[in-house]
Design a protein around this nucleic acid. Structure first.
Lengths: 215, 215
DNA sequence: TTGCCGACATACCGATGAGTATGTAACCTC
DNA sequence: GAGGTTACATACTCATCGGTATGTCGGCAA
């Protein structure tokens, strides 16, 4: 009867759903979940509600799909680096650089994901979407865990400042993810500008966690 | 006829307004501006809409008052430190420690302020509240400027890593302000826990900006 | 004591927007 | 080429919520 009861992009309408997700991400990024109307998303698509509700059963489901798309990309790109070669500091730096670059490149989707599951959702529609919700929270936890493990490696190797790994992860992400708050892409953004921002944030985060050389 | 056309807490009803602001901050923190209903704020107060609309003319005005309360406290406490004694590194560290501590102590109000003027507002009610809006943006800029100047001092004194000051400010705030995303106060939160978090974040941010000793 | 006013509560209105029901044109299949 | 299905658009319903209009009650001044 319908496309797919889950939010997975299986088969039918996969590219149509992708286009909807991208448009939705732009509007969600701009106004947040609550203040975004489905009509507004449809207008950005040059279409009407009908198109969206043909592929998604609710606004929440669409929102979840944005989050999933974001987390899938991050996990897919960062995990191999974490499991790759190099010592903890080298791997962590490569992960951070890739992470910030993805945020900057894929801003709408990533910004929505970084903002996170706004509390309004957890309380409101938690029951109906409990399974999807858990899987998203799971992905976020997994992602943080990847960083936490590398950081833990580095601490035990004596490379990083001696902090509780879980707590050290927070400002590390903070230094990077904060860009979703202050960064506004300019028309004619040059790729090297993005690269410079990514490099600066990565260096800051790495200095924050590396063991100081002053004895 | 009415209390005060501006959002200033002048004279009449000052403490009543304060109580409303605190309750509003809690609900805004939880649900964001758009998803927060005035009825919900009233319920948290154990009152009805009537009480709120007696002191505030709109939901936006109430929201602005939360932001103003937050920025006033930050400016009031941090500026003296910036203008105090000590070299740039010492002053910046004291500022950061105070900043994070205030965020943790005053979480609801500060979290709303850190989240910032959500874009939905700027577009929607910008015209009616243009003056208030400008003054809030002004306070935020001033606050960031205080940090930027100390950071600039430190860079020129050769204490800090050689970065564009405006760009260096971003991850510095990021490492600290990110706590508003991940930190959830626990029942029976001990003051020393707050102090440890504040110290850890401050140390991270300072290491991030201090010139590395490795030649 | 009377009359006014501040401090709310209650009752109501109108707009917005999520979700649904229904139409409909193209396309695919046999 | 008839019947079904996909991919939408259109039209409508209904609940929520911001804001307002009005009522009420206690205190305070004359």
């Amino acid at each position: 009867m319908d496309i797919d009861s889950s939010s997975l992009k299986t088969g039918t309408g996969s590219e149509a759903r992708d286009e909807i997700v991208r448009a939705a991400a732009e509007v969600f990024m701009e106004f947040g979940f609550a203040a975004t109307s489905i009509d507004a998303v449809a207008e950005r698509l040059g279409a009407t509600k009908g198109r969206i509700y043909h592929y998604y059963r609710s606004k929440a489901e669409l929102y979840f799909d944005v989050q999933i798309a974001a987390m899938e990309r991050l996990l897919r790109e960062i995990e191999p680096i974490a499991r790759g070669e190099g010592n903890a500091a080298e791997r962590l730096e490569a992960m951070a650089l890739r992470h910030t670059t993805i945020l900057l490149e894929d801003l709408p989707i990533q910004k929505v994901a970084v903002r996170g599951l706004e509390r309004e959702l957890l309380g409101a529609v938690a029951a109906r979407h409990a399974k999807t919700l858990r899987s998203i929270v799971r992905m976020r936890d997994d992602y943080e865990q990847i960083f936490a493990e590398v950081i833990d490696d580095g601490i035990r190797a004596g490379l990083f400042a001696d902090l509780p790994p879980r707590l050290a992860t927070k400002p590390f992400f903070g230094a990077m993810n904060w860009l979703t708050v202050w960064y506004a892409p300019r028309r004619l953004q040059k790729p090297e500008d993005i690269a410079e921002i990514a490099r600066t944030l990565t260096e800051f985060a790495m200095r924050g966690i590396l063991k100081g050389a002053q004895p």
